[in-house]
């Protein structure tokens, strides 16, 4: 199923809320996405950065996985 802009906004809100006391994490996530948009980093690069940034937050990682193309997935560490 195709995700919409509303889903992206909702996900960004989720990240912002979860790191309400660590706004730098939210800003880092926005920076990663901007680097991807400008093609400074590719999909595997995004996956590497996001998996480090959201380590210990499996719900955010699983939410992020829904935006990844087929064949890509961040494994959740339990």
């Amino acid at each position: 199923q195709r995700l919409k802009v509303e889903d992206a906004l909702s996900y960004l809100d989720q990240v912002k809320l979860q790191f309400g006391n660590q706004p730098q994490v939210y800003n880092d996530f926005l920076d990663i996405m901007k680097e991807f948009k400008s093609q400074s980093i590719d999909t595997p690069g995004v996956i590497s950065r996001v998996s480090q940034l959201f380590k210990g937050h499996p719900d955010l990682i699983m939410g992020f996985n829904t935006f990844l193309p087929p064949g890509y997935k961040i494994e959740v560490q339990t």
């Binding site: 992206a8 906004l9 996900y11 996405m33 901007k34 991807f36 990844l68 193309p69």
Partner: peptide
């Protein structure tokens, strides 16, 4: 690019960042 939904998320993030959100 083979990741249209990730591009969409990146576009939304860029707009959000631009708004200072």
């Amino acid at each position: 690019l083979p990741a249209p939904q990730l591009v969409m998320l990146a576009n939304v993030a860029a707009v959000t960042a631009g708004e200072g959100g």
